[in-house]
Amino acid sequence: MSRIEVEHLVKDFGGRAAVNDVSFSVERGALCVLLGPSGCGKSTTLRLIAGLEEPTAGRIVIDGRDITHLPSKDRRIAMVFQSYALFPHLTVAQNIVFGLEVRGVARAERDARLGKVAALVGLSEYLTRKPGQLSGGQRQRVALARAIVSEQPVCLMDEPLSNLDAKLRQEMRVEIRALQQRLGMTMIYVTHDQVEAMTMADQVILMKDGAIEQAGSPVDLYQAPATVFAARFVGAPPMNLIAAAGPEPSVVTGVRAEDMRLAPPTGNGADAEVTSIEYLGADTIVGLRRSDDGDAILVRVPGRASARIGERAALAWDPAHEHRFDRASGRRLSAFPPSTDRSPA
């Protein structure tokens, strides 16, 4: 049985659809990431599920219960806001148990749950502080604790890590995922960061312009992107699109950076010139430009690349690694051969 079902959800803001006929379902205990560029309707979708916006059309069902028109408080959800939405005049402890107090949970139980959750997120020593006296990461934990302590079966998160620095973001990714699995929460997690989606999700819903572009596991999205947009959005660096490769002009061919190799120049027109070298430690991203088109092609080379800027090289790849898209619609033409054992980058 699906835990969360979203059916043909539409939300209009003054005639413009921010969410346009979105349907998906999330399994019980799964972490579903809503991924997409800024303004694609992720937050609106989440807020519709939270009951903070009224849908123009569509249905939201949680555990067989139609909650489309229920007030937020009766939906049995918890939510972590991008801004954390902590009450600045309350202490960490008061912030965490705010909802329990409002719902009339007895003091003894409140204290017990507070103690447990505070230990879980590592806030035990900060319970008497006000949010203003905490670092960004600690505030994030308070917001997380407030969501966890409510023990709701569904947890919604809107870009919870976007205000943290890169190192903390990475730690929190792992931590949130571990908590979600340990507590068995069903989670919908909004982000524009494909790394968060790839590393945390059981299921990724990639959105664009208010509609779903592709839904699937991180591996599906990486290995068999359904559209050119998905191919370019998921994975870093984005997939190379090679114009006019092959005999068919209506086809766009995509090859990922790690599926490409640099070969000695052949001397014919297909050679490219090295224009950038980005050393990452374990590997190097070499950027090349062919004379006949503008877009740089990025090649991932293990270790340090021997290439120098200005040198010429030929590009080579195994045709099995080609992703083929229809130029007009941007949709995928070929199924990706199920031969790979690569894990997503």
Binding site: A50, S72, M79, F81, R146, S150
Partner: peptide, 11 residues
């Protein structure tokens, strides 16, 4: 969003 957070918590 303080109001929204409180509404979700049942206030």
């Amino acid at each position: 969003d303080l109001r929204e957070a409180a509404a979700i918590e049942g206030a």
